[in-house]
């Protein structure tokens, strides 16, 4: 059994080791980058699937955070950051989809591209990395709610608010996303 490391969720050391944020205070942009940077990066990596895109995504998020701090109302700051990150991620996906050179599969059931085959079996020796690779192959619309639910530990209600989609859609996408991961893992 592989010894899996800690999740990046709300109870993870990434968060616990940070000084407890004061919900009544608004951090500066510098404090966001310093105190939440690792959280943002980890989330960005789980969504984007690779370091290059994760770095671009974090840069985009920090730009949005910097601009959004002016109007931020004290509350669930980490939830606010997660919302910005997932929205920035999905915006990037939508922008990439508009490029004529890359076409997404039209088969709605084809959530995972390609067949893992023998490479997947070999990769299974490193389950976290293998799981991340499979996660990255989920269509973004399914990947985002799965990451928010299973990696960050958000509730369905929080995810629905985060992604601005109905809660039933959230449940459906998570269920189907998990299903495709299960299929891929059992190949």
């Amino acid at each position: 059994m592989l010894a899996l490391a800690t999740p990046i969720g709300l109870s993870s050391p990434v968060v616990e080791n940070r000084k407890a944020p004061d919900p009544a205070s608004i951090p500066t942009w510098e404090e966001v980058a310093e105190d939440y940077g690792r959280f943002l990066y980890s989330l960005a990596y789980r969504l984007a699937g690779n370091h290059h895109d994760a770095q671009d995504l974090v840069q985009e998020v920090l730009l949005r955070v910097r601009r959004g701090l002016v109007n931020y109302k004290p509350g669930n700051f980490e939830g606010w950051l997660s919302r910005i990150t997932t929205n920035a991620f999905l915006d990037r996906v939508r922008k990439q989809k508009r490029r004529p050179t890359v076409s997404m599969p039209e088969d709605a059931e084809n959530f995972i591209q390609g067949s893992p085959g023998i490479e997947a079996e070999m990769a299974a020796a490193d389950l976290p990395q293998h799981l991340q690779e499979l996660l990255a192959e989920l269509q973004p619309e399914y990947r985002a709610p799965v990451v928010l639910k299973d990696v960050l530990g958000y509730s369905y209600e929080e995810i629905a608010a985060n992604l601005d989609i109905p809660i039933g859609t959230v449940r459906s996408r998570i269920h189907r996303g998990r299903g495709r991961l299960k299929e891929a893992l059992s190949v």
């Binding site: 899996l4 490391a5 800690t6 999740p7 990046i8 969720g9 993870s12 050391p13 990434v14 942009w29 510098e30 980058a33 310093e34 940077g37 690792r38 990066y41 980890s42 990596y45 789980r46 370091h51 994760a54 770095q55 974090v58 840069q59 920090l62 389950l127 976290p128 799981l131 991340q132 996660l135 799965v146 990451v147 639910k149 299973d150 990696v151 530990g153 269920h175 998990r178 991961l181 299960k182 893992l185």
Partner: peptide, 29 residues
Amino acid sequence: WEADISAMLGQLPAVEPPPGFLANAVDRR
């Protein structure tokens, strides 16, 4: 099976940014 998948995902490790990435982000402020 969903709980199993969820548990596996929940155990994915935190991903560290490349060395200097966050410092650079802060330095660029």
